[in-house]
């Protein structure tokens, strides 16, 4: 049964140009509705900017700025500084939004700088595990085995050959006060984490898992189901951490019984080539098992 959320006023207007079943749109709505109207967003280039701001339209009910692909963190740093200079900092949330490309790869330096400098900015990464806006190219967020347009599976290729970059753990290493992972399948958990981040002083990082029907190859009505399967299989673990001691990590959604990863992999075209390769499925399963053990479930 779907979890219910209180929504009094929408901060993210309907009618934008996202694909049917876009996971990112679902996540943005939850994040913004939790943050409320006293919020400014700086965003990187990507699907989200393209689908929400085709001039002269805008889906943003809050002040919003997009400058370039790699620098939402730096733009947000300038916004925060200006608010302080103007005596308007109090009560305003400054958020930076990035897709996985603009966070894991090209925007990584700016993100690291912003975290290190200790700005009171909440960075939210909406991760759909490839460069979707440019046509499903491989990113350092792309998981092992996924076929993308630049890591295609073939007779000599298993698809993406490298594991997913542990972005949230890298952010934790910056010694920031709060880091969390979240999923659109668990909106209450997501919103609670947004709230925690907003209530903490200093830079926070939220890594939100957002399935993409276009890039992953599944029917658009299955977005939430697939996001849920990622959690139930342990492919994407939902956790939160105050400070930098991983011993204090708190897993916020533990399935009673973890489903085998095949249940998740078989739902998506990007993993289709793996299905007749039991040794690869086994490899992915054992990596997920090992990860879940580290997270304590």
């Amino acid at each position: 049964m779907a979890e219910q959320c209180d929504v009094t006023k929408e901060m993210f207007a309907s009618g934008h140009r996202g694909c049917a079943g876009c996971g990112e749109g679902i996540a943005v709505r939850q994040v913004l509705n939790e943050a409320g109207p006293n919020t400014i967003v700086a965003e990187v280039t990507g699907c989200l900017e393209v689908m929400t701001t085709g001039y002269p339209e805008s889906a943003w009910e809050i002040p919003w700025i997009h400058a370039a692909f790699e620098n939402a963190s730096s733009v947000a740093s300038g916004i925060e500084a200006a608010l302080i200079a103007k005596g308007k900092r109090k009560g305003v949330n400054v958020l930076a939004f990035g897709g996985d490309g603009g966070t894991f790869d090209i925007g990584f330096q700016a993100l690291s700088g912003m975290l290190e400098r200790g700005h009171n900015i909440k960075y939210v990464c909406f991760d759909n595990e490839a460069y979707m806006n440019t046509g499903i190219q491989r990113c350092s967020s792309t998981p092992y085995g996924a076929s993308t347009t630049t890591s295609p599976s073939g007779t000599c290729s298993i698809g993406e050959s490298r594991p997913k970059k542990p972005i949230a753990a890298i952010c934790v290493a910056h010694d920031i006060p709060y880091t969390a992972t979240a999923s659109i399948a668990h909106p209450k958990d997501l919103r609670k984490k947004v709230r925690t981040a907003l209530d903490v002083e200093g830079p926070c990082f939220l890594h939100v898992f957002v399935p993409c029907p276009t890039g992953w190859g599944y029917a658009s009505e299955r977005t939430v189901e697939i996001a849920k399967l990622a959690v139930q299989t342990g492919v994407f673990v939902l956790w939160e951490l105050e400070g930098n001691d991983f011993a204090n990590i708190k897993v916020t959604k533990k399935p009673k019984e973890r489903k085998p990863v095949i249940e998740y992999l078989k739902t998506q075209r990007r993993f289709k080539h793996l299905l007749d390769k039991p040794e690869e499925i086994e490899k992915i399963q054992s990596e997920v098992d090992e990860k879940c053990e580290r997270y304590g479930f």
Binding site: I65, A67, V75, A76, S77, G78, E80, A81, A82, A85
Partner: peptide
């Protein structure tokens, strides 16, 4: 980039 964010604010 920070100049841009600040100036836009």
């Amino acid at each position: 980039s920070a100049c841009i964010g600040a100036s836009a604010t």
